[in-house]
């Protein structure tokens, strides 16, 4: 049920009761649906999207292109596992680009910390041929949400 998943993807704070009303179902049905999705691994977790730039947290994020030589029999998966187990790694994708293989999205406190991670942890992994680090200067949109785009409701108020 795409619409249901889309709705809770957009707003994870809706209660089971509210969802039941919105989708014309019993609360028990909604609870069972969510449980099933969780068990099947369709729903993986619930997070809050925070614009950290509006807080005093110091952080920097970067995208790292990683080129690797895949190992016989094990493909990319084993190297990926080594990389995604670092808590600094936010996202990891296998790419179809010819230039590189893995795309690592990473967050650190400072550029130095990110550089250290690349030099000390990522680059030395066996089979990593090269890396290219791109620092994020500004986040405009993430997970479908435009940052800082909260605009006043300017609609004519009655018509």
């Amino acid at each position: 049920m795409d619409q249901f998943l889309k709705t809770i993807e957009d707003n994870a704070t809706l209660t089971e009761k509210e969802l039941a009303v919105m989708f014309n179902k019993e609360v028990g049905d909604i609870r069972a649906m969510i449980k099933k999705y969780e068990e099947d691994g369709v729903i993986l977790g619930y997070k809050t999207i925070i614009d950290w730039d509006k807080t005093d947290r110091e952080y920097v994020s970067a995208m790292i292109e990683v080129k690797i030589t895949p190992q016989r029999d094990r493909g990319f998966d084993r190297i990926a596992e080594k990389i995604y187990n670092y808590p600094e790694v936010q996202s990891l994708y296998l790419m179809s680009s010819g230039g590189f293989d893995l795309c690592v999205l990473i967050e650190g406190r400072t550029m130095k910390e990110v550089a250290y991670f690349v030099a000390q942890k990522l680059a030395p992994i066996e089979d990593v041929v090269s890396t290219a680090t791109h620092f994020v200067l500004r986040k405009y949109k993430d997970k479908g949400i435009i940052y800082g785009a909260e605009e006043p409701d300017e609609r004519g108020y009655f018509i």
């Binding site: 409701d153 609609r155 004519g156 108020y157 009655f158 018509i159």
Partner: peptide, 9 residues
Amino acid sequence: VALTVGQPD
């Protein structure tokens, strides 16, 4: 907090 408008959001 208005629920007055007659047009889509």
